[in-house]
């Protein structure tokens, strides 16, 4: 099977540049504003979109994404509405891959088979489920593959040589390298370490390797994009959303343009990374 994710990475490879991957939470700060942001992301230079499925207990998230999940839940976001959001986005965009990211319980509660089927119909291309390691592949990873959807696995600094094959085994679409030991929004990773880790993973897979956690500025994004097939930014974007809420928590008129402008600066950072010939 070839998914939108495969096609997008293949196209970018031809262009000779890394992907810019933006993360936003579904329904943050509310459904309508969230949809407006999503619709603007491709033109702001986003190559792939990760949409966070809000959860009350996101154990690997730092304060920015925790807060964005709670904002979305308070605004009434549900799993069903998250799929509605994707459906609405797809009406105007058939090409940009959408990856749903989150935690297993809301999916499990929805029913895995039903969720996979509804997500596919809505226009979702893949999933990142933080608390489903390779050991639990039978829960959702294998059913997703069977349904023709990508299941993107996280590799981390604690994933050693010995464990990496198990992590890569059923991964498809791309590999998401978590560049730091820690939670989202943590301190930036050392570029040299990231470059070594990406090389280590690439030695064992032909899949693209995207890097996330700790990337906050266009400069960070450019540094990472020089060594990886993609750079993911999440916490910095949702913080930008938070910074453009008024004191009642409602979005200000500046919110959407400010967020998209910030996204554009990050995307430009990624695009600038390999203007000089790539190191390899």
């Amino acid at each position: 099977m070839t998914t939108r994710i495969d096609t997008r990475f293949a196209d970018l490879k031809k262009e000779g540049r890394a992907a810019f991957i933006a993360f936003v939470t579904a329904g943050d700060p509310d459904f309508e504003t969230s949809l407006e942001i999503l619709k603007g992301l491709p033109d702001a230079g986003t190559d792939l979109i990760e949409i966070g499925m809000p959860f009350t207990d996101p154990m690997a998230e730092g304060p920015p994404i925790q807060a964005s999940y709670l904002r979305a839940l308070e605004a009434g976001q549900t799993m069903k509405k998250t799929l509605d959001l994707v459906r609405a986005f797809r009406k105007g965009n058939e090409a940009t891959p959408i990856i749903l990211m989150g935690y297993y319980n809301p999916v499990y509660h929805y029913g895995v088979e039903k969720f996979l089927s509804d997500a596919k119909t809505a226009g979702v291309d893949g999933f990142i489920i933080v608390d489903l390691p390779a050991e639990e592949d039978e829960e959702m990873c294998l059913p997703a593959l069977e349904a023709g959807l990508n299941f993107i696995r996280l590799a981390t600094p604690t994933t050693d040589e010995h464990r990496l094959p198990a992590v890569l085994k059923n991964t498809s679409g791309f590999v998401y390298y978590v560049s730091v030991k820690g939670i989202t929004g943590a301190a930036a990773a050392n570029t040299g370490d990231v470059s070594d880790a990406v090389a280590r993973i690439k030695a064992q897979t032909t899949l693209p390797v995207a890097v996330g956690f700790g990337i906050k500025t266009p400069q960070n994004a450019a540094a990472i994009a020089a060594h990886a097939d993609g750079a993911v930014v999440g916490s910095a974007i949702v913080d930008c959303i938070k910074d453009n809420l008024d004191e009642t928590g409602a979005p200000t008129a500046d919110l959407v343009p400010t967020v998209l402008e910030f996204v554009k600066s990050l995307a430009d950072g990624v695009r600038s990374a390999r203007q000089a010939p790539a190191a390899d």
């Binding site: 390691p133 390779a134 639990e136 996280l154 590799a155 981390t156 604690t158 978590v178």
Partner: peptide
């Protein structure tokens, strides 16, 4: 061996914690 009591239990953690 996978930590299951019937369907319950298991190892639902982030990859960073899995080796630990």
């Amino acid at each position: 061996e996978n930590g299951h009591f019937g369907i319950f239990g298991g190892r639902f953690v982030a990859e960073t914690l899995m080796p630990l």
